Simulated scan of single mutants.
Amino acid sequence: MQLTTERLALVPLDVDRDLADLHVMFADPLWAEAAFAEPTADFDASRDRLAENFSDNGDLTWALRAPGSSDAIGVIGVYSDQGTSTRRLSWYLRRDHWGQGLMGEAARVVVDHLLTLPGIDDVGARYRRTG
């Protein structure tokens, strides 16, 4: 299901379609440093990162786009490691779109949507600093 906000279209993630755009983000050394991750070296590593975080979440992952654009500028979805009626969100946004409040806007519409789905009673997000 596509979701929309004032400034974003959230389109169900299609890894084959969105991988090239998301790889640009995952390969960015400054983005990776801020995310406490290693930059991905190639498309396969970026595909693996997406699979690790979102592959078995019941298709509850969206690519973020500016309206009218086909470029994925980020991704938001439910973590793969669910097993309760509480779902946790994870998200990534390209560095050139930071500081605009886009992810907060996306998270609000995703949370509202998730809470309408059967079997989901609570939604949370966690920021973990390492190192």
Rank of each mutant, 00 (worst) to 15 (best):
D112H: 08
A72S: 05
R49T: 05
G101C: 06
A27I: 01
W31C: 01
V110T: 07
T40K: 02
R129G: 12
P29Y: 00
M1P: 14
T84L: 12
D71E: 12
L60F: 14
R49P: 06
P12A: 04
T4H: 13
L8H: 08
A41S: 15
A27T: 00
A35R: 00
H23I: 07
F43P: 15
L114C: 05
G74R: 00
L117V: 11
F26V: 01
S46M: 04
S85A: 14
A106C: 06
S85T: 14
D112Q: 14
Q82K: 07
T5R: 06
W31I: 01
L8F: 09
W62Y: 08
E6C: 10
A106W: 02
R108G: 13
Q100P: 04
M103N: 01
V110G: 01
V111P: 02
R94M: 12
D56Q: 10
W91T: 04
A72L: 03
Y92A: 03
L89K: 13
L60R: 15
L117W: 08
D21N: 07
Q100L: 12
G119D: 12
D56K: 14
D48E: 10
R94G: 09
L117F: 07
L64R: 03
A37W: 00
E52D: 05
Y127R: 10
A9Y: 10
Q100W: 07
D81Q: 11
A51Y: 14
R65I: 07
W91F: 15
L13R: 09
Y79V: 09
D44G: 05
A107K: 04
D42V: 01
I120S: 05
L89T: 11
N53W: 09
D44V: 08
Q2R: 12
T116V: 05
L114V: 12
G104N: 06
F36S: 01
L30A: 05
L102E: 08
S85E: 13
D42A: 02
R126Q: 15
D59E: 15
L115H: 05
R17M: 04
L89R: 06
G77Y: 11
F54S: 01
Y79F: 10
G119H: 11
A125E: 14
R87D: 05
